[in-house]
Design a protein around this nucleic acid. Structure first.
Length: 226
DNA sequence: TGCCAGGCCGGGT
DNA sequence: ACCCGGCATGGC
């Protein structure tokens, strides 16, 4: 760390005041949230919505166990065609099935049974599933399972790096640990905080614009002043 | 038009 | 242990 960490709780209050509640995750059921978490990998959410609409129209996000079974039985190409708007559709069809296969085989296609497993243990098992990396695992655990794990993404790292809170090249794990250490273990707080960082990132923190001059960073993060 | 989006995997150093 | 190309659509 280049400087003492800001009061991340105060930063949260400022973000909430600036952007308001984000109402994440924008999904109606745990299964839909899990599916969305995989489909949104490096993809704009608006495209994911189209893919999810296709799945709903095909009746594949209604009954949880039934939907999981039907998607698993479907040929890869057919599932890929449905999720086409979300991009990387061939890849994501396989990743989606990888996750569904895990839920099916290990928990009998019952997500509520999955959440009963201890968080750390479940997290490691999810990371072993093909196509599930740290962010997707944490998104599933927090937003679908309501378990207290902080979700880090590219925006989180960009924002914290540009504020000088962490050095460039900070790892996912270090960033996650920082938030979890500095904040109370609170699912609702983790939920809203990540969503607010994404809102801020979309606003001002693009990859090719290293400076956010005149942007909302000043408003929201002034407590980290040098 | 080109760049970007709520990553992750596999192969190469 | 890093680094990088591949994966693909749709919006601005």
């Amino acid at each position: 760390m280049k400087r003492p960490p800001p009061d991340l709780r105060d930063t949260y209050d400022r973000l909430l005041a600036a952007f308001g509640p984000q109402h994440w995750w924008p999904g109606e059921s745990p299964l839909e949230i899990c599916v969305g978490a995989i489909l949104t990998q490096n993809t704009a959410w608006v495209n994911v919505e189209k893919a999810i609409a296709n799945l709903k129209n095909a009746g594949l996000l209604d009954g949880e166990r039934e939907s999981i079974r039907r998607m698993l039985e479907m040929p890869d190409e057919k599932l890929a065609a449905l999720i086409r708007p979300s991009g990387y559709f061939n890849l994501k069809a396989k990743r989606l099935k990888g996750f569904l296969r895990f839920v099916q085989d290990e928990f009998g296609g019952d997500l509520s049974a999955m959440w009963k497993e201890p968080l750390e243990s479940l997290r490691f098992r999810l990371l072993d599933v093909y196509g599930i990396g740290p962010e997707t695992a944490d998104s599933i655990l927090l937003y679908a399972g309501g378990l207290p794990t902080f979700v880090v993404d590219a925006y989180t790292i960009r924002i914290m790096t540009r504020l000088g809170v962490v050095d460039e090249g900070v790892t996912y794990h270090a960033m996650k640990e920082l938030f979890e250490t500095m904040l109370p273990t609170d699912v609702a707080l983790y939920n809203e905080y990540h969503a607010l960082l994404v809102a801020l990132g979309k606003d001002v923190c693009r990859p090719r614009k290293p400076r956010c001059g005149g942007c909302a960073l000043r408003v929201t993060c002034s407590n980290s002043r040098a």
